[in-house]
Write a protein that binds this DNA or RNA. Structure first.
Lengths: 260, 260
DNA sequence: AAAATAGGTTCGTATATACGAACTGCAGAA
DNA sequence: TTCTGCAGTTCGTATATACGAACCTATTTT
């Protein structure tokens, strides 16, 4: 249990608290947070006090903590920095307007899909995905597209504990996942059949910058609205959008090195 | 310069740094941040180190700090907590699909409009507003709707230094602002003519929960697409959406006391 | 009504953090 | 090539934070 000696305990605690509350809003009191993090109340008290005074946290009537608007504003700067996102949004909106299904733009973080943009279908049934959420990449078409250049050893490193099912259809076998990835490399797209969300099928294509997969886009189709014609339209839209987005990304200021 | 003795210095520093970097991504080095906050390098160094290790910050090739994805995820929990936002999104999408103009949902924070949801117009010209951003309330139709129940003394408290212009058209006179608010109370809507963004006109209506204005919705129209017919359609859509959203908000779990 | 529980607050001292100063290493100027 | 400036890193000690324990207050249980 080596500890990096440059790590700052107070800062770690602040971040632990923020992440804990974010993961479970309105679930914990000061006392709960102390017992979860094995810290004395008198130590976390001034931290929570400050976080609340600064509107990073707020406290509800049952003394449970929630994330407040200052945290939201800080976090949103992450999206603001992605100055190409406006263009991506237009392209997603255009796709959704044509096929009337929900579209997404996402990137890979650790082994998870991080949703960066979503355009909802105007139709009544939609996905329950949320911008800002993370889902294990292996369980979604978006994720498979993001993993398109991975080989078995990369996958094993990413998922050392194997693949946990999200639905009865989730692929939990690394061999099958890799096989799908190999096929996808030839076809240029990935798909998913109720592997992350029941009643939802999904198509996705990777977005490359300087050859490397840095993001992906997808369209989700409820199974009761699914047809081969629609799937074909969706794939065409995705390929088209992919080209547009890639040309935007490759023209973007080179300084965005760490961003995507 | 009284200091609240419960305030925790380390936590304040962490939050100062996050807000500073969020306000100006890729602008500051460690040394910059130290000089801005009047702190020694050796003090902020472990904080920045930890923030970076935890992916709240990231550092670009010129040693400038930016917000990273962990901050984004924490901040997004704020929106996730607003469990009625999905419904609001559907209603906004519906409005935008009918009038083909950009719609917004926002709330008031201090004297600022905090944008919570935006549905972009499918047309090519759009507003430059951003979800997560804040604009002074007096300069936008959304803000005026949010201020609809304010009187002169409330406004003076909110803007002790008066009103600063965002565009040549911004209202900078509190008397005129109050007059517009009074008129709006009778008409039920507010408007704005290039007061926050050039070439954009805007209509907004307040959303009430238990009688109190807690949010507002708006539709923005580029002036070259403006007509009295369109304005009339937009107002009708807003009134209709207002009723739908209010019935959702009033049926929401009562525990969301602090949220909106 | 008393007791118990649970959330939060305060306090004095042990201890970990903060600070200034000195150092490294790199990039551009002289 | 040397010099200068700038970003970041390290170190020993002064000092502010952290901790356990005790306290307050409101609500629930007995």
């Amino acid at each position: 249990m080596e500890q990096d000696k440059n790590i700052h305990r107070s800062t770690s605690r602040v971040l632990d608290i923020l992440e804990l509350v974010a993961a479970n809003p309105s679930a914990y009191t000061l006392t709960d947070i102390c017992s979860i993090t094995n810290s004395p109340k008198s130590s976390l008290y001034p931290i929570l006090y400050t976080l609340t005074a600064r509107h990073f946290l707020t406290i509800d009537s049952n003394a449970h903590y929630r994330i407040d608007y200052s945290a939201y504003q800080v976090g949103n700067a992450y999206l603001t920095q992605l100055n190409f996102l406006d263009e991506v949004e237009k392209i997603l909106t255009n796709m959704t307007n044509i096929c009337l299904e929900t579209s997404h733009f996402a990137t890979l973080v650790d082994g998870d899909v991080l949703y960066l943009k979503k355009i909802d279908s105007p139709e009544f049934i939609r996905m329950t995905s949320r911008v800002g959420n993370r889902l294990p990449a292996y369980g979604t078409s978006l994720g498979k597209a993001l993993l398109m250049d991975y080989e078995m050893n990369d996958l094993k490193k990413l998922y050392p504990n194997g693949l946990k099912a999200l639905t009865p259809n989730t692929i939990t076998d690394l061999e099958i996942l890799l096989e799908q990835i190999h096929t996808a490399r030839i076809q240029g797209f990935t798909y998913e059949i109720e592997e992350s969300t029941q009643y939802i099928r999904c198509y996705a294509v990777p977005i490359r910058k300087n050859g490397r997969v840095t993001a992906a886009i997808s369209i989700a189709i409820p199974i009761f609205r699914f047809s081969e014609d629609k799937a074909s339209l969706v794939r065409t839209l995705l390929f088209d959008a992919k080209n547009k987005i890639e040309s935007i990304l490759n023209n973007v200021d080179t300084d965005i090195n760490g961003l995507l």
